[in-house]
Design a protein around this nucleic acid. Sequence first.
DNA 1: GGGGAAACTGAAAATCTTTCGCATCTTGCT
DNA 2: AGCAAGATGCGAAAGATTTTCAGTTTCCCC
Lengths: 138, 138
Amino acid sequence: MENQQIKQAGLKVTAPRVKILGILEHSGKRHLSAEDVYKELLSQDEEIGLATVYRVLTQFEGAGLVCRRHFEGGQSVFELNSGSHHDHLVCIKCGKIVEFVDSLIEDRQIAIAAEHGFRIEDHSLVVYGLCAGCQNAR
Amino acid sequence: MENQQIKQAGLKVTAPRVKILGILEHSGKRHLSAEDVYKELLSQDEEIGLATVYRVLTQFEGAGLVCRRHFEGGQSVFELNSGSHHDHLVCIKCGKIVEFVDSLIEDRQIAIAAEHGFRIEDHSLVVYGLCAGCQNAR
DNA sequence: GGGGAAACTGAAAATCTTTCGCATCTTGCT
DNA sequence: AGCAAGATGCGAAAGATTTTCAGTTTCCCC
Ligand SMILES: [Mn+2]
Ligand SMILES: [Mn+2]
Ligand SMILES: [Zn+2]
Ligand SMILES: [Zn+2]
């Protein structure tokens, strides 16, 4: 369970960490802001401060347990590290998020970086638009 | 000169606007943060407040004169709108920025959005890595 | 099963970037 | 020149995240 992952990450197993990891795993949404996690904790009557949520999420990120995403506007969102990279399609109206992977795009990025002598460390591709539902809402 | 562009944007021609547009046009760097612009103004002994710099840059953005980019870390950066879209390769060590356009990637994005019923409004692709120079610095 | 050093936590204060409120100037037009 | 709309500069405010710090907890070792 969660305890193992936390331990393997080199972190002590504490109530806040177990709770937060649990929320990331079983809360319906895959992409949560620190605030989202905090509210979920509150709704479960957990006495955990927002600063701790940020701290823990950052530690989880450092340990490779979660990925932090910076979409436009406001807060960063966190998601469990699925192990495989993917990019995002975000609806600017309702916030719906669709994940996708495209090897053609990935390959082109590598080629382009190489053309310019860069060694890729990471990349961020986010496509913003209106989802099907939001296009039909007049 | 600058005055025309500002006027055509529907904005009054004021000293701060002319100065800021001038800095964006002739300051060596293509990508500047509001703070960068502010410092440049200070070094030219201009009495312009940081709030005005942000305000003006935001107005320029609204008028289509400049584009605002949100790279990782801290501040947004602004660049003159070249008229044509492009993406960025950013060195995480020295901050060097290389611009590129890849129609294959653009096309795939459109196809992917379509597959998911999205109508694209915008997108952001940033590839982070080490530039040639920074790779050889041990 | 304790003892204790190291790690962790909540709450408040601090940072950092960007935006607001507002009294005071400027610009653009007659 | 005279005026109304629009701009500016300043300080305060806001929003997100981080840091500080004193009290607590975990977990390694005997
Ligand atoms: Mn995702
Ligand atoms: Mn650019
Ligand atoms: Zn939508
Ligand atoms: Zn570099």
